[in-house]
Design a protein around this nucleic acid. Structure first.
Length: 366
DNA sequence: AAACCGTGGAT
DNA sequence: TATCCAAGGTT
């Protein structure tokens, strides 16, 4: 009986990919490369988990220095569990998506107190921890514990959508693609298979101008045989970013200290440090002027800082005043020596605002 | 389930 | 300059 659809030889595809990976894998600080694995070196689940959380929606290049810094400061997950939250937030500052840092801390505490300092070795056990979703649970299970878990991230979505020429748009086509990944994932070396799929997506099956001639799947790829891999994956259209306006107030007292405060734990930049600001709204009125300053002073306009967040663009009017008399407002506010700014949990947008008012704020003192 | 949640590099 | 998007998760 003739089949209407010719199924691919899944084991042959996985084998071809692993051969490619043995030769062309990337060397990464958190990775046990195939030659080391052959010598019996095992991945450290703490390292794999830490890297996976940092890599969520974040480039390898951006993660590398943060990964090294965290590992040097907190060598074991129990060290991270015992660390003050403020230290963790400050160390994460600049990486973005700060809920990840809050959940990282919660997860480390859960592993330390509920699992005896040892990560669960199953996808289900990992999935129950804070900050670990479908992707990360599968990735840690496969990479750290050699579990046959179907790992699907943005890279894998691109590879699979092209290999099978999936015309349905993301994110609706995710279950369909996950089933394809599960069918492809081998019992032998599932961790390397997952990393190989992601390396392939990152280096060969790229969003633009993929290097199809170098791809181990070149003879099986339906998108390539249809002559346009760049058409995949199909995605739903995204919405335009609205603009929000606000003002930020950089106040310095007579002792070279700057007025800072802590943002609420939830929401945008949750738990991070900021200079006093107004609300950020779409309104064009007096809210972006010195009239809405935290206290009356000779505020000087220092221009407008633009910063693009995930779902809106912010235009912050920056105001500056110096030699003000220091005062205690609430327990959410404090005066911090400018020399200590580097150690604060300041998100990038706040560093921009401070630099607009004090250009040398982050230059090391001579 | 759609909205929310950062940042910087590549094109 | 504008757009995309990178090892996604939570609510």
């Amino acid at each position: 009986m003739k089949k209407l659809i010719q199924p691919k030889d899944e084991s042959r595809l996985a084998g071809a990919l692993l051969v490619w990976y043995d030769r062309h894998h990337r060397d990464l600080p958190w990775r046990i490369s195939p030659p080391m694995a052959k010598k019996g070196v095992k991945p450290d689940p703490y390292h794999i988990w830490l890297s996976e959380v940092m890599l969520q929606q974040t480039t390898v290049q951006a993660v590398k220095p943060y990964f090294q810094k965290f590992l040097a400061r907190w060598p074991k997950v129990t060290d991270l569990a015992a660390a003050p939250s403020e230290d963790v937030m400050a160390a994460w500052a600049g990486l973005g998506y700060y809920a990840r840092a809050r959940n990282l801390k919660k997860c480390a505490e859960a592993v330390a107190t509920e699992h005896g300092g040892v990560f669960p070795d199953s996808e289900e056990g990992l999935r129950a921890l804070p900050g670990i979703g479908d992707y990360t649970a599968a990735a840690v299970a496969a990479i750290a514990f050699n579990r046959q878990a179907a790992v699907m991230d943005g890279n894998v979505e691109r590879v699979i959508s092209r290999l099978y020429a999936i015309a349905d748009p993301l994110p609706g086509s995710k279950p369909q693609m996950k089933a394809k990944v599960a069918a492809l994932t081998p019992a032998d070396r599932p961790g390397d298979f997952a990393q190989a799929m992601m390396d392939l997506g990152a280096t060969i099956c790229t969003p633009k101008r993929p290097a199809c001639s170098l791809c181990p799947f070149r003879d099986d790829c339906l998108a390539l045989s249809a002559h346009d891999p760049e058409l995949f994956p199909v995605k739903a259209a995204k919405k335009a970013k609205p603009v929000r306006l606000g003002a930020a107030f950089v106040a310095v007292d007579g002792m070279n200290r700057i007025l800072l405060r802590r943002r609420p734990d939830k929401g945008l930049l949750g738990g991070m440090t900021e200079v006093p600001t107004t609300e950020w709204t779409a309104r064009i009125d007096g809210d972006d002027t010195e009239a809405s300053a935290p206290f009356t002073a000779a505020w000087q306009a220092k221009g407008v800082v633009t910063h693009v967040f995930t779902h809106f663009e912010l235009r912050l009017s920056v105001f500056f005043v110096e030699n003000v008399k220091g005062f205690a407002n609430s327990h959410h506010e404090w005066w911090e020596p400018i020399a200590n700014l580097e150690e604060q949990a300041l998100p990038t947008v706040m560093k921009k605002a401070i630099v607009a008012a004090i250009p040398e704020a982050f230059t090391p003192a001579r």
